[in-house]
Amino acid sequence: MHNLLRLKNLTVEFFQNKQVIPAVKEANLEIKENEIVGLVGESGSGKTITTLAITRILPSAARITSGEVIFEGIDLLKIQEEQLREVRGKKIAYIFQEPTMFLNPIKTCGFQVAEAIITHQNTDKSRTFLRFRRTSSQGKVRDKFNARKKAIELLKQVRLSSPEEIFFDYPHQLSGGMNQRVMIAQALASNPKLLIADEPTTNLDVDTEKEILDLLLDLHERIGFSCLFITHNLGLIKRLCSRVYVMYRGSIVEEGNLNKIFTTPQHEHTKALVEAFLKIGQ
């Protein structure tokens, strides 16, 4: 199985107040097709920045200063913004820790999922879902109808009960767990090859967390996609991933399959993570 994504010596630095602060130091990482890989580390270790660097959606103070991000054979750091847009959100989708921050509070959930569907269908045509155009309005109506059907399908797939009603709900009317499912539905709308999940369950209570993890595993089996799962909790990695990378202070300090990491951790920090999990992980 060849690599879907490969990070080669990726370095990201922050430029602030005439200071250069390294956030990610020469990260090397591989994800194969249909693989769930974990990236574990403390807060501030650089996990999120690494994943944002993949599709170049970094905060303005951060810059990728060296390395390569090879996705399906192409270095994403070298292509134009237009080509990158074909990948970002489509082939590589993200879900984040705070669904309420990434869901528009004034649009219904169904609308947002359907919008994602339409956006990724029409690459260079209309961007907004509801704009009426004189040319091929029939086609647009059909598009909207199909998108709505597909959106309800997706909401069903993420195991939301009564998806037809949830379609018309706003994010603030749903619980954290339900919002997270909506975000997953939105991410899967484009049938991505790679799903990057950045601490998606950290804000959820234990039961909901378990459900979301089960959901991800189930979707992975049925639909098939690769997943990069980021967390600070080794326990989640155990349930989900086959391989894991350990990150500490910007560098990837250890890598291996689950068994190896848990039974024979090499790096100091990995040992600390394993110890913490054994003591108080659930």
Binding site: E42, H232, N233, L234, A272, L273, E275, A276, F277, I280
Partner: peptide
């Protein structure tokens, strides 16, 4: 907090 920090505070 992160698990490692949780252990410290505990």
């Amino acid at each position: 907090l992160d698990l490692t920090r949780q252990v410290e505070i505990l």
